[in-house]
Computed example of a mutant assay.
Amino acid sequence: MGAMDDLLSPDVVARLTTAISSAAPGLDLPSMTSAQSAVRDKRLRGRVDVVRDALLSDLPGGFDTVEGIVPHLLRDPLFAGWMIWPVTELVTHRALRSGSTEHFDSAMELLARLTVELTAEFAVRDLLNERPERALSIMHSWTSHDNEHVRRLATEGSRAYLPWARRVPWLLENPESTMGILHATYRDSAEYVRRSTANHLNDLSRIDPAIVTATAARWAEDPDGNTAWVIRHALRNLVKRGDQRALTLLGFSGDGLVVAQPQLAENVIEWGGTVEFTADVTNTGSTAAVVAVDYSVGFTRANGSVSPKTFKLGSRSLAPGETVTVSKSHSFRPITTKVYYPGRHFIAVQANGVLSPQAEFLVERGAVD
């Protein structure tokens, strides 16, 4: 098990059991006691499920029981950190099983209180799936909350592609539905919230690029000191894809760019080694160009297919007829967040979306794993 899994370790589950006992004296908690050992062989998501199910088993009654216990937990210093995640899911499960609109709204309120101590962004997805328009209406009201964690719950919890979270198909089908939340938060006083807003808009570029660039253009017309950064961060994937509207919004220009095939220092890379390359970018146009330069690595996957991933190289200003040589090294050193496979890979460089020919290289499996 990795370090992330230990965020909900047996000791953490034991402390949560003690906190529940304090909040509900005399309550028998056999499932929670069993959960302390049951989480050992699970990954983090599985551990959350084990503890949530134990809470559902041990806590009697319906949503009213949960609604009575959670405020006591929030006053207990022992109730902190990742033990809060399964409690947020307990709240949503009981509210949805009730089917009551009153309980739905109360669950949203409890999540807003719980998110201040950790995050309720994963649990709120269940409520969004059940009643998306009602949930979004409440989340929009959070954008004016005095606590930045609650404001971020509005922006992060409603992201189309929130990492680790369940998908909400309705959000994918209605990308315009969260625009009110984004317009209310792109100038938020907290960088924590602004970054979430930018990531949210960037998510939507996978669904509707036009709505993303239109939104960025609207923000550019009514900016504050942080808006330029928010727009750049929100448009980053569209820039990598060479979206001309996004490039123009960010001040990139040049309609006569040529990118030569990258030149590799070595065509064979040892396992755990580094690929080094250079590439020439030329402005063949008659006016100066401001160029966003990126590079892609085509990674061989386990099934033998090649999947490209794009990385930033920076930006350049090029006079008419000027050529600049860009260089970069990309490490294949094993890391926990990326699995590499031996075989043929490629490098390509792009300038304002103009792509170079690919340069292939071979990654050989060696003695280092």
Rank of each mutant, 00 (worst) to 15 (best):
D126W: 06
M179A: 07
F346Q: 00
I269D: 09
P60W: 04
Q244R: 15
S356H: 04
V212I: 01
A359F: 08
Y192G: 06
T178F: 03
V291R: 04
P25C: 11
G366L: 09
L111G: 12
V150L: 02
S205I: 04
F63H: 04
P209E: 07
V48A: 15
F252H: 14
W82C: 13
V87S: 02
G272I: 11
G180S: 07
M108Y: 08
K338P: 05
A228R: 13
E130G: 03
S329Q: 09
L27G: 13
T248K: 14
K328E: 15
H200S: 01
T143V: 07
A112Q: 00
M32P: 15
A302H: 03
R45W: 12
L249W: 10
D222Y: 03
E121A: 08
G61I: 02
R152A: 02
G62K: 03
S21L: 08
A288P: 10
G254W: 03
D58T: 05
A190F: 00
L111V: 11
R131H: 10
R152G: 01
S177Y: 05
S21I: 08
G180A: 01
F277T: 05
T284Q: 12
L313H: 08
V39L: 04
G99I: 11
E266Y: 02
H93C: 14
Y295V: 08
V12G: 01
G61D: 10
V48D: 15
G353F: 01
S137W: 12
T143C: 06
G273Q: 06
L235R: 03
S34N: 13
T310D: 07
A135C: 09
L313I: 09
L74G: 13
N199C: 10
R218L: 01
L128W: 13
A95H: 11
P132W: 07
